[in-house]
Amino acid sequence: MEALHSTPTNTLTARSRSSLWIGLWFGVVTLIGLLNALHRYLNNVANRAPALFSVNLIEELTGSLSFGLMLPLLFAALRRIRQLPSRWQRYACHALVLLLLSALHTSLSWGSRALLFQLAGLGHYDYGVMPWRYLMEFPSDIFYYLLVAIVLWLIDRYRAAQQRELRAAQLESALSEARLDALRLQLNPHFLFNTLNAISSIMYERPRVADEMLARIGELLRATLNAKVQEHPLAEEWRLLDLYLDIQRARFGQELAVTIDTDPALARIRVPFLVLQPLVENAIEHGGEDRQVSIAAWRSGAQLQFRVSNPAAAGGAPVHRGHGIGLSNSEARLKHLYGDAAGLRLEQRPGQGWDVLLWLPCREEAAV
């Protein structure tokens, strides 16, 4: 039974990130206080007027920590000010926030120092004439205000640029997937209409053959509709191609002769879904009266290569004439999936016919 109080991973990640930022904030403001205290102490020593280091330390740490406590509110105010439509509204708000920040910073510093001096046994803390102290602290608060505003603006610009790049990459990926799906769905009706036309031409003369063809086309379409990915192992591609060839064997009988030459070691290499079917279909439909088709697959270095051949007579029409959808879609899918690392080429064998050569990168399916 699953524990009722289990904490989601994303919650733990958010807590870890928050703890990291809090630790970083505390470390930075403490370091600033320590460095300022050391600077003041050494300056006093150099002026032959040494003072207790603890006094300098309390004063500088309370000053830096007081300012650091107001940073979250300052961040929120600066981001809201950026959204104001008018430039003068933004300037006025910056001036108002700066005045409030400086007054609050000086007041927190004075109050915390008075308390810590008593706790440390250093006696009463005298901060001098307070109106002049507020004026004295104001110039340094202007500097830190501008520094925080500029750094926050740069950080937000950087984050916005990252988010734009991420959205652009996601949109590009979604667009590429949509294009691939559209190309694949365009192939399915093309194949389906051709097969149904073939069935309709023999259903009265050879009803048993037509029935067998319908059963095979049902299996093939079921596999096509259930496919959720653009690639699958070559072994699955051979299985689906065999279903398609069963349909054509039922249609043409002994007229069709198909030979497949492949290496079982290539079975796990990923290939585009039904990439071979339109090439084989073109070879069968326009391959000559003997309908002899040979299919070969082999590995050449980092590439997987295919050759689909037919015995069309020399000087005959190219295989893809009148059937541009099959080859053009196959080429477009290869381009979307692999870029320049894959391609498709039509070659004529002198006096023998046409070959379709296809190549793509070797990417093996992960072993289960």
Rank of each mutant, 00 (worst) to 15 (best):
H286N: 11
P361L: 09
Q163D: 13
V308P: 01
A49G: 03
A76P: 00
F138D: 13
I81K: 03
T7Q: 07
L122I: 05
F193A: 03
E237I: 07
T262Q: 10
A312I: 12
N329T: 13
L274C: 08
N44C: 02
C93R: 14
Y145V: 08
P50N: 08
A37G: 01
W298R: 12
A250S: 13
D141G: 06
V258M: 12
K335L: 03
Y41K: 04
A178Y: 00
T11W: 13
A103S: 14
A49L: 06
L175G: 10
T62L: 05
D340V: 02
R291H: 08
A92E: 01
A161T: 13
L147C: 09
P131I: 10
W153N: 13
A342K: 07
S16T: 13
V356A: 05
L57I: 05
L108Y: 07
G322P: 06
L116H: 03
I325T: 12
L12K: 04
T259D: 14
S54G: 14
P350Y: 03
A174P: 00
I142R: 05
V319R: 15
Q163T: 12
Y144M: 15
L119Y: 07
E60I: 02
L135I: 13
D290P: 01
L220A: 00
S140E: 02
A77P: 09
A169N: 09
V209A: 15
E212S: 08
L279R: 09
V319F: 08
E289K: 15
P85G: 06
R157W: 11
Q254K: 15
S328V: 04
T7K: 02
L245T: 04
G111I: 14
R363K: 04
S300Q: 14
A227I: 03
R157N: 13
L234G: 01
G315R: 01
Y158R: 14
L214V: 15
L100R: 04
D181P: 00
F67R: 15
A297C: 10
N197W: 00
R17P: 00
P361T: 12
L180C: 06
R17A: 08
A49I: 01
S107V: 09
D261V: 08
T195S: 09
N329K: 11
G316C: 06
S140F: 15
E365F: 04
S86G: 07
A174R: 15
L240N: 11
W153L: 12
G301P: 07
Q118E: 10
L334M: 02
R321F: 00
Q292H: 14
W132N: 08
E365D: 13
S330L: 03
S16Y: 12
A120I: 12
Q348N: 05
Q163V: 08
R87I: 05
I269M: 05
F53W: 15
T259I: 08
L234E: 01
I81W: 03
R159K: 06
N47T: 08
F117R: 06
D181C: 03
L225E: 10
P311K: 14
A317P: 09
L187Q: 11
F53H: 11
R87S: 06
V229R: 06
